[in-house]
């Protein structure tokens, strides 16, 4: 077993390259850590997805106590990262936070598996209200 934990620069390398517009190759079945969005259905609302590497590190030796495991969460629910990996679009952390906030504040976005109708948003569309809800 490899005992050295994967450094953060390696974990998030693919995501960082993508965000900077470099288009690194994407391989099916090999998800990369980062912050993403995707749609569950055509014209559905964007769903925020976070993938990270779970590492159990021995505080004394700095080595791994168990295998590293890739974790994935979408709106608070655990997901299989490999299953949705090819649908994910990398976004910045700020965009991820904003998308999560929209999901908290716009009830209609809870229907994740239906086309999203922007006219159904009951919030007032005042820009300051959108950013301060």
């Amino acid at each position: 077993m490899i005992r050295q934990p994967t450094p953060l620069a390696v974990q998030y390398g693919w995501w960082r390259k993508s965000l900077s517009g470099q288009e690194p190759p994407r391989h099916e079945g090999y998800p990369e850590c980062g912050w993403y969005k995707y749609r569950a259905v055509k014209n559905g609302p964007f769903l925020p997805v976070r993938i990270w590497l779970e590492q159990e590190i021995d505080s004394e030796t700095g080595e791994l106590c168990a295998d590293e495991r890739l974790r994935c969460v979408c709106l608070g629910a655990r997901r299989d990262p490999e299953a949705i990996w090819t649908y994910l679009r990398p976004i910045s952390r700020a965009a991820y936070d904003e998308l999560e906030r929209l999901h908290r504040d716009i009830d209609q976005m809870a229907a994740t598996h239906a086309p999203f109708d922007v006219t159904a948003i009951t919030h007032t569309t005042q820009p300051q209200l959108w950013s301060n809800i």
């Binding site: 014209n43 964007f46 929209l102």
Partner: peptide, 15 residues
């Protein structure tokens, strides 16, 4: 690639 890039505004919610 950079010279071909165009400014776009995507949707916040996906709608």
């Amino acid at each position: 690639k950079a010279s071909k890039q165009k400014a776009r505004v995507g949707s916040a919610t996906g709608g």
